[in-house]
């Protein structure tokens, strides 16, 4: 597993064109199961999650991120567009530093 994606079937299909293996899920239980399985392998790799999946599994995702073990996560939009407003990395940093350290352009 170099790349792996968990998301809705259309997005998974798209990434499959780039040779990414994937689990198409459409409810929380399936998503959790797929995520647990993918994370448990601990193989070096990148795990892509669609926003929908990341929202469903918020707790697990955060816990895995802070555990600092592979596979490393990144969140991608699903192909039918973004889902509402998301917490950006910028906000994460702002929260940690306590002040804004960069200007908005």
């Amino acid at each position: 597993m170099a790349y792996h994606i968990i998301g809705d079937q259309d997005t998974v299909l798209g990434y499959r064109f780039a040779g990414v293996t994937g689990d198409a899920v459409d409810n929380e239980e399936d998503a959790r199961e797929a995520f647990t399985k993918a994370v448990a392998s601990r193989k070096p790799g990148v795990l892509l999650l669609t926003e929908a999946v990341a929202d469903m599994l918020e707790e697990e995702v955060t816990a895995h991120r802070l555990a600092a073990v592979p596979p490393y996560l990144t969140i991608v939009q699903d192909i039918w567009g973004p889902r509402g407003k998301r917490r950006s990395l910028q906000e994460l940093i702002d929260e940690a530093v306590g002040i804004r350290i960069v200007r908005d352009e």
């Binding site: 991120r65 802070l66 600092a68 490393y72 996560l73 990395l89 994460l92 940690a96």
Partner: peptide, 11 residues
């Protein structure tokens, strides 16, 4: 993915 993970941990 690399950058994001680093930012999370550093933050």
């Amino acid at each position: 993915a690399e950058l994001e993970s680093s930012v999370w941990l550093l933050a």
